[in-house]
Amino acid sequence: MDYFWELFFGGLTRGSIYALIALGYTMVYGIIELINFAHGEVYMIGAFTGLIVAGVFSLMGFSGASLLVLAMVIAVLYSSAYGYTIEKIAYKPLRGASRLAPLISAIGMSIFLQNYVLLAQTSDFLPFPALIPEFDFMEPYIDYLGSSELVIILTTVLVMIALTVLIKFTKIGKAMRATAQNKKMAMLTGVNVDHVISMTFIIGSGLAAVGGVLIATHIGQINFYIGFIAGLKAFTAAVLGGIGSIPGAVLGSLILGWTESFATGYISSDYEDVFAFCLLVLILIFRPAGILGRSTTQKV
């Protein structure tokens, strides 16, 4: 039974990380109907920034929780700045162009950022310091739930709550919901759509950075390519839940996390990524609207 719980919490941890990334996909898609292909790279840049910050500040004598918070805050800051800049360069000039153009631009941006990090840093795997300490009170549960997993799950829950509050009750949250429903109407009622889009990219990128730093310290190594696979899987999760829907992204991420965890645990670990991709292909074919998504009628 321990093995089951190990896989359960392993899946929950994975799912939490996917959720943090998937939210960025789903929020951007909800507002400008674009698959932000470069989102995985923003997550990767978050992890790298976290690594660099942790490295620099640990030499200055920081350690433990303060180092984690510092790394996280600066990573969030930088990823948000990247997300904002990416939108301004690669997507904003293309508003109103055909559907393919921003998507190709996004793919180009993704390739560019991967190679930018590769050239600026390294193509090798970099060891990431363990920033989350082993808690004593977790000792009895160590077989199936580690301290870092607990921190990941709790942080994700906190972030989700914060995001929900932001979207439900703040002015920018209301503007975001209005824009997602009907861009033109939102504009007519005085919403600054450009501002809303920028904020969406900033928030989504910040969330991805949280995920990036957490998973990096949990797994213990990163390289320039981690964003591609993670991004693709988080996108799968967003589609599974129903792209555009925030609770959907979380639900889809958890389902995907557990699917992967149990499938690799009970079936075979060779095909870890294949499960996710098969799930993606199957959902898109049989229920493109996802679990919580609404199927929309195309306007003619």
């Binding site: 698959i35 589609v239 095909y271 993606l280 493109p288």
Partner: peptide, 25 residues
Amino acid sequence: FPVLRLRGDYLAIVTLGFGEIIRLV
């Protein structure tokens, strides 16, 4: 046959997933 009724951006992702599946297999 199954994927071509999908919208353009979903089609892109499915073909990407398919490409990766073939490589992983």
